[in-house]
Write a protein that binds this DNA or RNA. Structure first.
Lengths: 211, 211, 211, 211
DNA sequence: GATGAATGAGTATTCATTCAT
DNA sequence: TATGAATGAATACTCATTCAT
């Protein structure tokens, strides 16, 4: 809900402002984030921020929305929905992560903050919607898998979703943690290691850990 | 790292203070939590808090430690480590959750806040340790499982840990969410539903989702 | 002291701007009155206001002057100075009040604000002049009355002025208060009541309250 | 509605704070009055003001109440209600004004600000009560006068009240204006002049201006 | 040890005014 | 001339922390 003034600004400036906000919110959290710092980072006057947004919270909420839409667009581009396998999707999606992490590190970290509930009730409403969208996407993949015969049909979709999300979320966080440790510089050896982990995890996902 | 003064206090008062702190930190987050409110909730003077702890952060850190130790004790009591199966452990652990949720709701919610990274870098150091302890516990269970032949041996322990944690974490959150919705009042029918979900998830954990 | 630009505007626009200003200043006082709101109310751009007036104060001062001149014109029209009796004047003037209150409520309220000193030193200079003009008017009526023999001659004019103003001001405020309570809808019965109050007050003015 | 903290303070400090507030509010009006300045004038820290009062408005309202009660007390002391004549009351009251003006100039000016409606809706509720109390006082005097036969009985009390207030208010303002011009230094000659004005006005009050 | 009054650094927000288009 | 985006000075209010009693 930015003000009209903000919407009339040219794209470049708008992006500068939002990225500055995202950066500050990620670094300091909502409470400690300073509007002045955001303004400085964006190269505008403090007062201008208030011509663009109602208040700090408004700016924050917009930043959340913006970053989410940003990723949606990217994901849409890279993972053409139709007829994909859940398992392939995982591979593609996870591989894509390291690319993104390099180019849009801060935004990705911010996204993680939101996702992990760091901002608490602040981002809650938006966050819930985010979850729903993601869930529906996966549910469709599951349906496809059942049809194709790659996914067991004796388990209901919601449960499979839970299972899938649990495993993949953990995997992504694991990989992301590794990237962070290397400051997002991916060496060849590490790339292979990650690739192997993914493959193995995929196996567990398919076959389970029992015997 | 409370001051000596605090340690000399009688148990009951100490607990009152910590619980007040936990309550406030959970409700408002670190930044917005007010020392005065904590003091009021605990029925002591604001100044007294500063005779017990160095500062707000100190009190927070102690609250984190305290709540973790509190749960450790309980878990230790309820799940005697030796010779247990990972899968049985999951059932026991998860069932135990609803009991706890009723008796120690706030503290459990606080624990979740910590675990989910809501307090960011603040609780990080402590959090990491927590993770390690939990991980080691599960790793031992995995080793036991491999020995007994209930867990596949062609996957390395770290990967199995990742897999196990992903699934169980998600499951616990799912169940916890349900409890929260019902304001932690567990009906018989709901109990059965949860029980079933657990059983099914256990199956997926063992056999995987593929076919 | 508006700028030339303002004076070149067509009458209608000028009036729109001043009335918007009067409205805003009456509703919120000088400090809290917002230039932007005035601009909006007048249907012009905020920047335009600064092309018309030096600053907020300038606009305010002009609004004061404008409203005063507005009333002067009306009073002049309705109460032809010559040869009128002070007492008749009071009746005419007071009766006129309810008419005005209906047509130009806000402006009248604004006028009252000025008169009662609500704007403090801001309107002081202008206010003083206003007083002088009003006083001279009444002094002339008093002189006429003394000549005609309707006013006692053993009291000096300044004192009589003081006396007259005290009584009439109070009366007007009383009547105005009544009007306001009825939201300026004058019923027949109320009209008569007011009329009687005026007549009785007139008697006291003439004969005093002693016996 | 000051906070408990304020009420626990010793009298001297409380008075220092209120007087500082009155001073600042009178000099700059509500909007432009600075809490920091008030704190400085009172010799306390800015933050302390907020331990004493909820906010600026709270402090203001208390200042109004305080000053009104202050004058009530004084008036009560100086003008023993019983059996006094309205006309004598006027003389006593008015004479008393110059005394007060010297000793408690600022507070008297503040009182005038309130009375004249300078603070608008802010002081309205309190102001109305003030009016009522004052009115009742005078109404009683009028009743006494009618009984004694010093006041005409063919006019109803409310009207007489209106009349009396109109004249006396004007007179007081006139005298106060003179005092202000002389910076509240009363010379002997001026004293006599004022005394005469009062006597003459009293005559008009009794006998009216007609003949 | 307990208390709660005192302190002041820190910050979100407002809005008159300027100025480029 | 009209517009509305940009600016930053100004200020109420919060709250962790200190300290005298």
């Amino acid at each position: 809900m930015p003000k009209k003034t903000f919407l009339r600004l040219d794209e470049e400036k708008r992006e500068r402002v939002v990225r500055a906000a995202i950066n500050e919110f990620h670094e300091n959290g909502f409470e400690k984030a300073k509007i002045e710092t955001i303004a400085d980072k964006a190269g505008v006057a403090k007062g201008s921020i208030y011509q663009y947004f109602e208040n700090k919270k408004d700016l924050f909420l917009y930043s959340v929305t913006w970053s989410m839409e940003y990723f949606m667009k990217i994901i849409d581009t890279h993972t053409p929905l139709k007829e994909m396998d859940v398992f392939d999707y995982l591979l593609k999606d996870t591989r894509h992560l390291s690319d993104l992490a390099k180019r849009e590190r801060t935004m990705l970290l911010f996204y993680q903050d939101i996702y992990s509930g760091k901002f608490g009730e602040l981002a809650e409403s938006i966050n819930e919607e985010l979850w729903k969208i993601g869930d529906e996407y996966i549910l469709r993949l599951i349906a496809v898998g059942k049809n194709k015969g790659t996914i067991r049909t004796d388990s209901d979709d919601q449960l499979l979703l839970l299972f899938y999300k649990g495993v993949t979320t953990q995997l992504k966080e694991h990989i992301f943690g590794k990237l962070r440790k290397n400051e997002f510089e991916v060496s060849e050896s590490m790339y292979e290691e990650v690739e192997q982990t993914m493959q193995k995890m995929l196996l567990l996902l398919k076959e389970g850990m029992g015997c």
